[in-house]
Simulated scan of single mutants.
Amino acid sequence: MDGGRYKLYKRIFSLVLLLVLVGIVIANVLQNRAADNAAEEEEAVLVDDGSSSQGAAIAPAESAGVEPGEPAPDFELETLEGETFKLSDLQGKKVILNFWYSWCPPCIEEMPEIQEFYEDYQDEVEVVAVNMTKHENQLSDVGDFIDEHEHTFTVPLDREDTLSEPYVVYAAPTTYFIGTDGNIQQPRRIGPMDYEFMEEMVQGMD
Score class of each variant (00 low, 15 high):
Y170H: 05
C107G: 09
R11D: 09
D141F: 07
P71G: 06
R188W: 12
L77N: 02
T154K: 02
G23D: 06
P173N: 07
E196W: 05
G69Q: 06
Y170D: 04
F145V: 03
E200T: 13
Y121A: 07
T162C: 06
E109H: 13
P173E: 05
K10V: 05
E62Q: 06
L97Q: 03
M205Q: 04
D2C: 03
P156H: 09
V127M: 05
S102F: 13
Q122N: 15
E62M: 02
K10W: 06
E67M: 15
A61Q: 13
L21C: 08
F85W: 09
A38D: 04
T133R: 06
P106R: 12
Y118Q: 01
E109N: 11
E199S: 13
S63F: 13
P60L: 12
N137S: 07
V95A: 10
L163C: 07
Q122T: 09
L139F: 04
E200Q: 12
H149D: 00
A39Y: 13
V22A: 15
K86I: 14
F85Y: 14
P71M: 06
P173G: 04
L8T: 09
E116M: 10
Q138S: 13
Q122R: 14
Y6I: 11
S63M: 14
N28I: 09
A72W: 15
V25G: 12
T180E: 15
P105S: 06
Y9G: 02
E124G: 06
I178T: 07
E42H: 04
M193Q: 07
T174F: 08
G50C: 05
R159W: 11
P105V: 06
V128T: 03
S102P: 04
P60N: 14
E119A: 07
F75S: 13
K93F: 11
N183G: 03
N98P: 11
L8G: 00
V169T: 03
T174V: 09
M1I: 08
I114N: 09
L87A: 11
Y195F: 15
W100N: 00
L80W: 12
Q185Y: 07
E110G: 11
A59H: 02
D49Y: 10
G50V: 02
E200C: 01
A57K: 05
G92Y: 12
M193P: 02
L163F: 12
H135G: 02
A72M: 11
W103F: 09
I12Y: 12
E200N: 10
L18R: 13
K86A: 15
A129G: 14
T180W: 01
T175K: 01
R189S: 00
H151E: 00
M111I: 00
K94G: 04
V66P: 02
V20D: 04
E110C: 07
N32L: 13
V66N: 05
L90H: 11
E124P: 09
